[in-house]
């Protein structure tokens, strides 16, 4: 068997090396304050990971990249869990209850096209600088996406399943628990993954607009100090965390939707 036959393509790491080489070459021809070399960014990320005294000087509450990554991740986790459960529940309800759909659908369809970031300055005034405004922004974004996925998944579900359950004497509660939720889980998890990917940037921008902690706050002070190296180091660490979270979500989909075509496909 060849390497490629095992699912390994040597061209992919080669492409990554090429990318790093291009970055290195570009950084060599530019001032380090504009584009630092990849190696110096890695060194900076590891040096500032546990303790970055300069951040304390700029007024960041927790002077380490790790502490701020944790803060940002906590916010994203809370927002994604709250938003996803709310969005999915309301979406499923809207697909089956006419009144809920009539009331919620126009609002959610509009929210689905409007850039949610519009709401950030409002939330800062209503909830003040802190966790609440960032979490509610991200939660609303996640809820919108999950609502749209849940509503569509439940609407596209072949009615034969529900008819069959009703014939066998299932009540509304069992109908929801045994038919509606399992049948829409693959789509819901797919939407969950998309929402999760967008949540990190939204959380960061909310912190950039006003926060005392978090990677967004770190980016804000580093931008004020025109510290490209620090900005890139923080961004890449945030990207790594986002990738790790996405990998967890993918594993979740593989575990809970393994039986569906969507679960196998989205791996």
């Amino acid at each position: 068997m060849t390497l490629r036959g095992l699912g390994f393509d040597p061209l992919r790491p080669l492409g990554a090396l090429l990318f790093l080489g291009l970055w290195q070459a570009a950084s060599a021809s530019m001032a380090p304050i504009m584009l630092p070399s990849p190696w110096s960014v890695v060194k900076r990320a590891s040096a500032d990971f546990w303790s970055a005294p300069s951040l304390a000087y700029y007024g960041v509450e927790d002077p380490s990249l790790f502490g701020n990554l944790v803060y940002t991740s906590e916010n994203v986790a809370i927002a994604v869990l709250v938003g996803a459960s709310l969005g999915a529940l309301v979406g499923l309800a809207a697909s089956r209850v006419w009144l809920v759909r009539a009331l919620v659908n126009p609002i959610m369809l509009t929210a689905g096209t409007a850039p949610i970031i519009i709401a950030a300055p409002f939330l800062l005034i209503w909830f003040g600088v802190g966790r609440a405004s960032a979490v509610s922004l991200v939660a609303f974004y996640v809820a919108t996406i999950l609502y749209l996925f849940a509503e569509r998944a439940a609407r596209n579900l072949d009615p034969i399943y529900e008819h069959s359950a009703l014939t066998l004497g299932a009540g509304p509660r069992r109908l929801i628990r045994d038919i509606l939720i399992p049948a829409t889980v693959p789509e819901l998890l797919g939407g969950f993954r998309i929402a999760l990917a967008g949540a990190w940037g939204l959380e960061a921008v909310s912190e950039l607009l006003g926060a005392q902690s978090g990677i967004g706050k770190v980016l804000e002070v580093l931008a004020g100090a025109t510290d490209a190296q620090g900005i890139l180091a923080s961004l890449i660490l945030l990207g790594v965390v986002a990738l790790a979270a996405d990998a967890c979500a993918a594993a979740l989909i593989a575990r809970f939707a393994a039986w569906s075509a969507a679960g196998a496909q989205r791996l």
Partner: peptide, 23 residues
């Protein structure tokens, strides 16, 4: 060749990159 670099660039949260472009 481009598969991994693009995967990497897509993983970076876009909205967090505003300060970089301002710089």
């Amino acid at each position: 060749l481009v598969e991994w670099p693009v995967h990497f660039l897509r993983a970076l949260p876009l909205l967090a990159m505003v300060p970089l472009f301002q710089l």
